[in-house]
Design a protein around this nucleic acid. Structure first.
Lengths: 199, 199, 199, 199
DNA sequence: GGGTAATCGAGACGGTACGTCGTGTCTTTCC
DNA sequence: GGAAAGACACGACGTACCGTCTCGATTACCC
C-alpha cells in the first residue's frame, strides 16, 4: 500500500514486478469503482502512476489486462454435500455471492462484454468457460458415482445449464436473486437428471 | 433503397419517417460490416447521410438505437406442438437459428455488451429480458393447462433457465450447438418440471 | 409588455408588426444580456417566441438584424457650448456615457465585429461611420465659422480622429475613461487645430 | 515545407516544434484563404494534419492562436527621424502599409472581432494594446527629451490617439488613406502637443 | 363571400464546429 | 534495456447553431 507512494523507477533491463503489481491492482480498483465504462488504459495508468507504454509493453490490449486481473481473483471451493440438489443450490449461491461481494463480478461482466467485440477475449472466454464446465461437471460426476444421476446425463451439458443461469443473472444485474428461486432451479435440474428408480 | 438517393429534407415540424428508416438501415449495415467495435453514432450518421443531432433527437443513446434495430430484425413465432418437451426444443432451435442466420445475433450480442457499461442500456435490456421471460412463460402456462407441468413450477423461472442457456451460447459463439444437445436440455427441463403422481 | 403573453398569430398575408417589434426587442435584450457571443438567431427566436423563418424572412442575416437593432437606438444631441474644446470634451463624454449606459455599446461592438467578416456589415458600417463623421464635422464647421479653427483644418479628418479615439475605447473595454483624459484629448485636438493668432 | 510530407510523430514527452510550426502556418493559411468567418480550430487541425487536442494543448483558445499568428507576422520598426511630426507620420504610414501589404491586417481585424465576444480574447487584446501604447509612447518620450513636446503631455494618451486613428482605418477598410491625410493628422497632433513659450 | 396567397408559430432536417476524452505509438531521460 | 512521462495523430463523443424546409392555422385581399 504505502510502499508505492514514491515514483517507481526502472530497476534495469527487466520487468519491474512492483509496476506489474501496481498496474493489476489499479486495474482492479478502477474496475470495481468505475465499472466497465470507466475502465480505460489511461485511467489505470493514472491510478497506478505508471506510463501507458509500460502497460502496453506487457499487456497487448485492454482485454489481456482484464483477463490477467480476473485470473488474480480467488475462486471459491466447489461444494460437496453428498446430495446433487444441495450441491447445485450451494454452487449457485456461492457463485452469485462471490460475484456480488467481490470485484470479480464487474470484472467478469467486462470480460464477457469485451469478448463480444474482441477476438482474443472471445477465445479466452470460450476456453475459460469450457474449463469451468468441466470443473463443475465433476460435481455431477460425483453424483453419478453415487447413483443419483441417470447414466445418459452429460455432466458438461448440465454444468452448462447451471452456469448459464448464473451468467444471465450477472449480465442483467440480478445477482441478488432470492434463495427460493435458486433452490427451485436446483431442484428442477436435480429432478431432470435423476435416475429413474429402475422403473 | 434508391428512392432516397437525393438529400432528405425536413417535412415540417414532425419526425421524418424516411430519416428514421435510413438511420435504422444504416445502423444495421454498420453493425454488420464493422461489428460492435466499429459501431458509432458518427458512422451511422455518415452512412445514413443524416445529421448527428437527428439521431440524438430520437434515440437518446447508442443502446436505444441498437434495441430498435434488434426489434426490427427479430421475427419469431413461439412453437406450440402440444408437448412441452418438443416446445422447448423447438424454441431453442428456432432462437439459435434466428441468431445464427440473421443479423439479430450480432446485434443482440452488442446490446448485451453495451448493457455491461451503460446504465440506460442495462435498464433497457433488463426490461426487455423480463418481457421475454413473460412471453416465453406462456409456453409453460399452456403446458400447465394441459396437465403436463407440476403446479408449483414457476413459468418465469423456467423461461429464465431456457433463455439463459440460449444467451450463454450466443455470448460464447456456440450458436451451432448440435440438435442432440438441445433435445437433451429440453428433455432435462421437461422432466424437471413434470407433474408427478400420474406416473 | 403584457400585450404579448399569448401566442402571436398570422394577421393575414402581410407582415405582422407585432412580430417584428417582438423580434427587435428580443434581439436587443439578448445582446444586452448575453453579449455578442450569446447572440444567435435561435436565441432571439426563442426569446421573441417567434419562428426562425419569420426572422429570416425579414432579415436576411444576423448582420441585418443587428443593424436594424442599432437603428432603433436613440442618439444623443451634439453639444454646442460655443467653444470647440468644450464641445469635443462634451461629445466624447456623452458618446462614451451613451455606449456605457445603454444597450447601444454592446450592439455597436457587435456590428463592428460582424463587419470584420461580413461584407454587408462592412459596407453598412463604412457608410454609417462616414455619415457620423460628417455629422460630427458640423461641430468643427461651427467653430470654424466662429474663427476658432485654422482654415486648412478638414472637419471630417478631425471628426475621424475624435471618433476613432472613442471607438478604440469601446472595443477594448475602456468606456470608463476618466474625465481628465477626455479633457486632455479635447485640449490636444483643439490646440492642434486652432487658428494661429494672425502671427 | 516538403520536409514534413509524412505524418508527424511525437518526439517524446515534450512539445514538437514541427507541430507548432505546422499549426501556425496552417492557421495563417486558413485565415488568408477563408477569412475570419472560415477560421476554425477544426480547419486548422485538418490543414496542419494535426490532432485537435494538440492545438488545444498549447493554445487555450482560438484567440491565443490568432495572437501567436499575429506576433509571427508583425515585424515593425519605430521610426526615429528626430522630429515628432515626421515620426508620427512615418509611424502611421508604416503601420497601415504593414497591415495593407501583409497578412497581419486581416489577422488583427480577426483578433479585434474575436475580442468583442470572447472574454479571454478581450483580455489578451487589452494587454497587447496597452503594451503597444507604451511602446509607441517612447516615441513621444524622445520628442519630450528633445524639448519638442509640452511637459504635461501624456505619452500614453498621445499614443492612444495615434493608434486609435490607425485602428479605425483598419476596421472600416480604409487602409489606403492618402498620404496627405496622414500628414495632416500628424501635424495636428504634433501641434496639439508642442511646447509653447518657444514661439 | 369564397378562394387564394402570404403570414404566423413550430420544430425537424443535414450540416459544421465546438471542446473533451481515450486510443495506441513514439521518443527522451533516468535508472 | 526497462520505466515514467507525456506529446502525437486520430477519431468519437454529445451539444449548439446554422439556414432551409414543411406543416397546419390564420387572416386579408381580390374576384
Amino acid at each position: 500500500m504505502d510502499k508505492e507512494n514514491e515514483t517507481r523507477r526502472s530497476i534495469g533491463a527487466r520487468r519491474n514486478p512492483a509496476s506489474a503489481e501496481a498496474i493489476l491492482e489499479a486495474a482492479e480498483a478502477v474496475l470495481a469503482e468505475a465499472g466497465h465504462a470507466g475502465f480505460s488504459i489511461e485511467a489505470v495508468a493514472r491510478r497506478a502512476r505508471a506510463g501507458k507504454p509500460t502497460i502496453y509493453r506487457w499487456w497487448p490490449s485492454k482485454t489481456a489486462l482484464l483477463l490477467d486481473v480476473y485470473q488474480r481473483q480467488k475462486r471459491f471451493a466447489y461444494p460437496d454435500t453428498g446430495n446433487i440438489e444441495e450441491d447445485i443450490a450451494a454452487f449457485l449461491h456461492a457463485l452469485l455471492a462471490n460475484w456480488r461481494n467481490t470485484a470479480s463480478g464487474p470484472i467478469f461482466r467486462s470480460i464477457i462484454a469485451e469478448a463480444q467485440s474482441d477476438e482474443n477475449a472471445a477465445k479466452a472466454l470460450a476456453a475459460y468457460a469450457a474449463d469451468r464446465r468441466t470443473q463443475t461437471g465433476t460435481m455431477i460426476e460425483r453424483a453419478k458415482a453415487r447413483g443419483e444421476v441417470a447414466a445418459d446425463a452429460d455432466p458438461a451439458t448440465i454444468a452448462d445449464l447451471v452456469s448459464s443461469f448464473a451468467w444471465s443473472h450477472l449480465l442483467t444485474g440480478r445477482l441478488d436473486a432470492n434463495e427460493t428461486k435458486l433452490k427451485a432451479v436446483a431442484r428442477l435440474i436435480a429432478q431432470g437428471i435423476e435416475k429413474k428408480g429402475d422403473t
